[in-house]
Amino acid sequence: MSKNKTPKPDYSLFVSRVDFFVFGLAGALYFLSFSLGDKLGHVYKVGGIVIASFVFAVACYLSYANTFGAKRARDIIVRELSPKLKGDEIVLDVGTGSGLILIGLAKLLNNGGKAHGVDIWETERDRERKILDRSLKTPKLTLKNAEIEGVADRVQLLGGDPRNVPYPNDYFDVCCCADLAHHLSKGSLDRTIIQMVRVTKNGGLLVIHDFWHMERTKKLLKKFGMEIEKIVSSSPILPISRCIIARKPVDGLTTQTGEILSKKSKQKPPIELASLSKEEEESLKRHFAEIEREKEK
Rank of each mutant, 00 (worst) to 15 (best):
residue 201 K to F: 07
residue 199 V to W: 02
residue 154 R to G: 00
residue 124 E to Y: 03
residue 231 I to L: 03
residue 204 G to L: 09
residue 142 T to I: 01
residue 144 K to P: 00
residue 182 H to E: 08
residue 210 D to S: 15
residue 217 T to Y: 09
residue 215 E to A: 11
residue 148 I to C: 02
residue 153 D to N: 12
residue 243 C to A: 12
residue 141 L to M: 03
residue 211 F to D: 09
residue 176 C to V: 15
residue 167 Y to C: 05
residue 119 D to I: 10
residue 112 G to M: 10
residue 158 L to R: 15
residue 216 R to N: 12
residue 211 F to E: 07
residue 208 I to T: 10
residue 194 I to D: 03
residue 149 E to N: 00
residue 214 M to I: 07
residue 197 V to H: 08
residue 136 L to P: 01
residue 118 V to L: 08
residue 240 I to C: 04
residue 155 V to E: 02
residue 118 V to T: 13
residue 151 V to L: 02
residue 166 P to S: 06
residue 116 H to I: 15
residue 145 N to E: 01
residue 135 S to V: 07
residue 171 Y to T: 14
residue 240 I to S: 05
residue 216 R to E: 15
residue 190 D to C: 03
residue 145 N to F: 07
residue 110 N to D: 08
residue 238 L to M: 12
residue 239 P to H: 03
residue 114 K to M: 15
residue 127 R to C: 00
residue 229 E to I: 09
residue 138 T to Y: 04
residue 229 E to G: 01
residue 118 V to S: 09
residue 154 R to I: 07
residue 190 D to E: 13
residue 178 A to E: 00
residue 117 G to K: 12
residue 152 A to C: 00
residue 145 N to Y: 06
residue 125 R to N: 07
residue 237 I to D: 01
residue 110 N to M: 08
residue 109 L to A: 06
residue 231 I to Y: 01
residue 117 G to F: 13
residue 213 H to S: 14
residue 208 I to E: 06
residue 111 N to R: 15
residue 222 K to Q: 14
residue 191 R to F: 02
residue 235 S to Y: 01
residue 140 K to D: 10
residue 214 M to C: 11
residue 158 L to Y: 11
residue 233 S to K: 14
residue 218 K to I: 09
residue 147 E to K: 14
residue 161 D to V: 08
residue 200 T to H: 11
